[in-house]
Amino acid sequence: MNDSPILELRGVSKAFGAVQALYEVDFHVAAGEVMALVGDNGAGKSTLIKCIAGIYSSDSGEILYNGEPVSIHGPKDAAKLGIEVVYQDLALADNLDVVQNMFLGREETTSLRRLDEVDMERRAKETLQTLSVTTIRSVRQTVAGLSGGQRQSVAVAKAVMWNSKVVILDEPTAALGVAQTRQVLDLVRRLGEQGLAVVLVSHNLHDVFEVSDSVTVLRLGQNVAEFKTKETNQTEVVEAITAGKLSKIPGQPAAEVVV
């Protein structure tokens, strides 16, 4: 794992009217690292990833990519940098097959502007293979016929096939059964092993402890703690989620406040 962060947020704030959704949040993730982002409902997890994804623009603070300040004003900017988000509701088109979904909006065409189905199918299979997704029997079956875990795998594969460097997963196991959760967690771990920076947003601490390298805790729009997963335990993280000390002092590293 490379320790210098590929994506770093410094002092990012975002308010919706009177509601301060994020206040001076610092956040970072390195290539090959699985960073879990945890917090109670309303802690600001979704707002934070939407700021990274370019759906919201932050009020203040800066985003650094490979150490360079960048401005992300829309999903296309994020995608250009190599940041992809897999949303909770997946955003797959049910009637389209696996290949069509993975290439949706970025189809390959032949010289006559016809869709290059053969090449797209080959690349989709390759991507699924590198992610060791073996449960999908045919890449030409419609997504409607897939299980929840398979759909999640397709959504992740779709995100990583564009040479992405940072993949953000929003509650990827929220609606899944035990076996499917296992599939998806294995997949998350493989993403990290392949050198991607992974941000895992989750409510489920069991999942977090199983696959993450580090944990960032948000509480009421502030980051109250950051842990190395190996050096902490669930009790400590739960404490931070529910009662982590809020620092209203701008610029003070949150980790020092708690540890």
Partner: peptide, 19 residues
């Protein structure tokens, strides 16, 4: 044609895919 199918299948997914 592909976008036509995508919009009919899931308009929001199509929008997020940049269509």
């Amino acid at each position: 044609g592909r976008y036509t199918f995508a919009i009919g299948s899931n308009e929001e997914a199509a929008r997020r895919a940049g269509i």
